[in-house]
Design a protein around this nucleic acid. Structure first.
Lengths: 172, 172
DNA sequence: GTCTATATGATGATAGAC
DNA sequence: GTCTATCATCATATAGAC
């Protein structure tokens, strides 16, 4: 059985990134918490950016798959699934909210912004007024905030209320 | 008339902090955009942290004054004033959202979290269920997101809809 | 008030031994 | 796979001249 050092590096990095931000976390800190040395990291990842990307990629890909594979209609069900999606990735989400600037360097800021635009289109259609756009921001942004703020609670304790609140805002 | 270099430094710093994050901005960048040298900054500010603090302090103080001086009741009016408050400081708000971690070093993360707790208490009273808490997070968090996402629009185009959406969530 | 020059330390990254 | 040793680069910050 091969050693799973690579996965352990990612776990520790995710932990530190969520704790103190991506930019604030050095390879030294990661290696120290793991009990290995800095250069050892370079055997598993070609660069620091490679490591960051490997952690963020799964969420980004799943988000983009979510809007790509989804057909319009059933807005209430979409809110439901949207919440489970951001909830599943809330550890990375905390990271992103805390440091949009760093993710911007990886070109993820714009992709996530574009993703939310698509999400709003799925919810309310293509032609929407500014007022609808703002309500959608309150609804979706508010739900994201919940995933961050109540990240330590069980899903069942947060989701029903958060989804219902978002639905009320959107008049669903 | 004394030169207002100090204020110009703060203006440029605010600009760069909002653009690319606090941690990502070096004193070198600030001095270069101003057309002066790095050590010149130290004549006006005793340290980098001193400069950051001088920019964030006004918002934090006004937030804390807001909850301190306010008596409970008139929740609809509170939502109204809350939105104008975060809107007025939205440049700093973008900074904070983008980099809670750095602000955490300045002990501001906890203060802002505490502030939102007080705000929710003013809105809904001291004894609230978790469900009310979550709805409040959607409402207040959603409004904050609007200040960030529509920072480039005039207030009158955003505020009425955002406040109304928050009020609906809270059943006001 | 602003400059030049410099001290000191942390960072990401590589070379090469084991 | 992990180590020791080392590099260039960048950061904040200070000393002292003008």
């Amino acid at each position: 059985m091969p050693s799973d050092t690579k996965a352990r590096i990612q776990a520790v990095a995710r932990e530190l990134f969520a704790e103190q931000g991506v930019r604030n976390t050095s390879l030294r800190q990661i290696s120290e918490r793991l009990g290995i040395t800095k250069p050892a990291l370079y055997y598993h990842f070609s660069s620091r950016e490679d490591l960051v990307r490997s952690i963020v990629a799964p969420m980004v890909e799943e988000c983009e798959r979510f809007t790509r594979d989804r057909r319009a209609g059933d807005p209430r069900g979409l809110l439901d699934d949207y919440f489970e999606l951001i909830w599943r990735h809330r550890e990375v989400l905390v990271m992103m909210v805390r440091e949009l600037s760093t993710l911007g360097e990886l070109d993820l800021g714009t992709r996530m912004f574009e993703w939310r635009r698509e999400l709003i289109a799925l919810l309310l259609g293509d032609e929407i007024t500014r007022a609808q756009q703002i309500r959608a921001t309150v609804a979706l942004g508010g739900m994201s905030d919940c995933a961050v703020e109540y990240a330590h609670l069980p899903l069942e304790e947060v989701k029903p209320t958060a989804v219902e609140a978002a639905a009320v805002v959107l008049g669903l």
